[in-house]
Design a binder for these strands. Structure first.
Length: 650
DNA sequence: TCCAATGTGCTTTTT
DNA sequence: GCACATTGGA
């Protein structure tokens, strides 16, 4: 088969691997995705039934791409999904064993943050800076769940601050509130799966039998919970095939533990290790420069990534006077390459460390009318107006979803503020009713306990209940698109949007777009349901449906560049305290992660690589002197040409 | 409850 | 320089 024809011996060996644990250490650009896909195809050729194979990825996009490739090659459908959607599937089947309801709603980060804020109010957490405290608590909860620690088992011995001391209480309360909403957060999808497996050997056995061959992509980014899921599922079969590159581990701040990949051989005795060291992507100057950079990390597996793609041009390092000039210089190159037909716009990318850096490049691109796209950033489904409508839809299906209730009850204004919402929630909890049933009883005058509210609020609630009931009726008969349109109509949402003239147009377009997407989605799936629709949207990220049809310059954070490649790459803002970021100062591990991030950026480049830095930069309202990033110094001069950009006069 | 004026403190973000 | 959170008056 042509697919296997051009595999090198190491790739071949990995693809041929039939059973037992295998770690593929796949350097940047070494054909990792192809190896995973080919191995799946190979398993199918060996008459392993497709339903026994499970492939796990970190993004929907990666899962989708592999799914398509496999389907094209074999017309078979193996299960390829993210860890979180795997958790979702498993929990939908069996979470009742843990005392949860099966038709739970999933809270995204924003919903969870909202819930947490409510918890902090409930518990009267008093701090100087609520925002910071909320962030700290959110992180602590996430870390606890990723490390599979229950509220009662939190180790408080290392805690010093008052916020930290309050954490176990908040965590416990937060879990309780999730339950009252019949909701799970992202981390629960993993943690509860682990608990389900650990506490119910029969359930585990069932899933072990179901999937006998496991493949994990980007293994260096797994956290403890994901690691546990994988090792539990493969405990019997031992058929675990993982691919990853420790040098590209850039999500430790999200709980990813690089030791999962570094200790693979220890964790899985008899494990085989295959190294893919030939890079098919980059010119030698680029690859050698990147290799030299990453060799400055002390804690790593040494590897020797090489390329036979020829020397190519040297890495260009440009010193700029400030960020305006940096943007001009970069876009000058972009336009020149495009004009000379060396690269098309879509062949080039700008990588930056932080989102705010994109603005100046956008200005410059707009000024010169160069089409561009920002990959990542705020997702369509996270826009306020879209989430508002989705929250209404959630109330239609999940009548005890407090976060959706709190979000929608005062749209449009019904005189029901924070305090009243709190009272209503407490009333509902005491009455042991869903929030919708409770306020429904309340307006009819037969709620126990009853809550004191004003005449105006009474009317507001009545209206609200009527709207939701109406939408529920609509959901019984019509399509999803109709339901979205009905939500717009019955809630008076368009009128509500018209209150802010500046944003009205964009927001209107977005809500209509949502209706269109609902229609499209309904067409494309076999069994459309409101629940499935909402569920898919919460697990969907912003980079999942990028529009590649149009020819546009790409802008994104270095994090979002992972897994992509471009002929021309600009890594910008390489200054101390920006890249590496100031928050990593003095912390060796953090600096090393920044270095890996820079390495990821550099190794995306096939033909041409530019590294730029500015002597001055406007940061937090003032102009600052910057020093060139240590990462620039760490690229040996033999791979580099250095340019000083003209000083900017304007 | 709501709105406008004032005060603070800055990342990255697969799901 | 900006978003977002808190505060105080209507």
């Amino acid at each position: 088969m042509e697919l296997f024809y051009s595999l090198n011996p190491q790739q071949q060996e990995a693809v041929e691997h039939l059973s037992g644990p295998l770690l593929v250490l796949a350097g940047a650009g070494s054909g990792k995705t192809r190896v995973v896909t080919c191995r799946i195809v190979k398993l199918l050729e060996r008459e392993i039934p497709h339903w026994k194979i499970l492939g796990l990825t970190f993004t929907n996009k990666a899962a989708q791409e592999m799914q398509e490739r496999v389907k094209m090659l074999t017309s078979n459908k193996v299960t390829l999904c993210t860890f979180h959607s795997l958790g979702m599937r498993i929990l939908r089947e069996a979470v009742d064993v843990l005392g949860y309801e099966r038709d739970f709603v999933v809270y995204d980060e924003e919903d969870a943050a909202q819930l947490l804020k409510g918890c902090m109010r409930d518990l009267h957490i008093d701090t100087k800076d609520t925002r910071k405290a909320a962030k700290t608590l959110k992180n602590l909860i996430s870390r606890a769940k990723n490390n599979m620690i229950m509220p009662d088992d939190v180790d408080v011995s290392e805690f010093t601050t008052s916020v930290e001391h309050q954490f176990p209480t908040v965590y416990k309360h937060y879990q309780q509130r999730l339950r009252q909403s019949n909701a799970l957060d992202f981390d629960d999808l993993l943690f509860l799966t682990v608990r389900l497996f650990r506490e119910n050997p029969d359930v585990l056995k069932h899933f072990q039998k179901r999937w006998e061959y496991l493949l994990v992509d980007e293994y260096q980014d797994t956290n403890a919970a994901q690691y546990t899921i994988v090792s539990l599922l493969t405990a019997n079969s031992q058929n675990l095939f993982v691919v990853g590159d420790p040098d590209q581990s850039i999500y430790s701040w999200r709980g990813a533990d690089i030791h999962n990949i570094l200790n693979f051989e220890k964790d899985f005795p008899n494990a085989k290790v295959i190294r893919l060291e030939q890079n098919y992507r980059s010119r030698c100057n680029i690859l050698n420069g990147a290799n030299a950079l990453i060799s400055h990390n002390a804690s790593r597996y040494d590897k020797n990534l090489w390329s036979d793609r020829g020397e190519g041009e040297k890495i260009t390092i440009i010193t700029c006077s400030d960020e305006r000039q940096e943007a001009r210089t970069v876009i000058d190159y972009v336009c020149q390459y495009q004009r000379d037909k060396i690269f098309s716009l879509g062949d080039m990318v700008i990588f930056y460390r932080t989102n705010f850096q994109s603005r100046i490049f956008e200005d410059e691109l707009l000024r010169r009318q160069v089409p561009y796209v920002i990959v990542g950033g705020i997702s369509f489904y996270q826009r306020r107006e879209v989430k508002d409508i989705l929250a209404f839809l959630r109330m239609v299906y999940f009548s005890s979803d407090y976060v959706a209730f709190a979000r929608t009850i005062n749209i449009p204004k019904r005189g029901i503020g924070e305090k009243t919402v709190e009272k209503l929630q407490n009333g509902a909890i005491q009455a042991n009713l869903s929030i919708l049933d409770y306020i429904s009883a309340l307006v009819k005058g037969n709620a126990h306990p009853t809550v004191k509210i004003s005449k105006l609020q009474q009317e507001g609630l009545q209206q609200y209940v009527a709207i939701i009931r109406e939408l529920q009726a609509c959901y019984q008969q019509g399509s999803l698109e109709d339901l979205v349109m009905a939500a717009l109509r019955h809630t008076g949402y368009l009128k509500y949007l018209a209150l802010d003239k500046e944003t009205e147009q964009d927001r209107k377009e977005n809500v209509f777009e949502l209706a269109a997407k609902a229609a499209e989605w309904e067409e494309s799936v076999e069994e459309p349901s409101l629940q499935a629709f909402l569920e898919e949207l919460t697990l969907k990220s912003n980079i999942d449906d990028v529009d590649v049809s149009r020819e546009r310059m790409n802008l994104m954070t270095a994090h979002n560049g992972k897994g992509l490649e471009f002929p021309g790459v600009f890594v910008v803002g390489l200054e101390e305290d920006l890249f590496p970021h100031i928050n990593s100062r003095g912390n060796m591990e953090a600096i090393e992660e920044e270095r890996r991030l820079c390495y990821v950026g550099m190794t995306r480049a096939k033909e041409r690589l530019f590294l730029t830095w500015c002597r001055h930069r406007h940061l937090w309202g003032g102009s600052r002197y910057m020093r060139p990033s240590r990462f620039i110094r760490e690229v040996p001069s033999k791979y580099v040409e250095v340019l000083e950009s003209e000083p900017s006069w304007v």
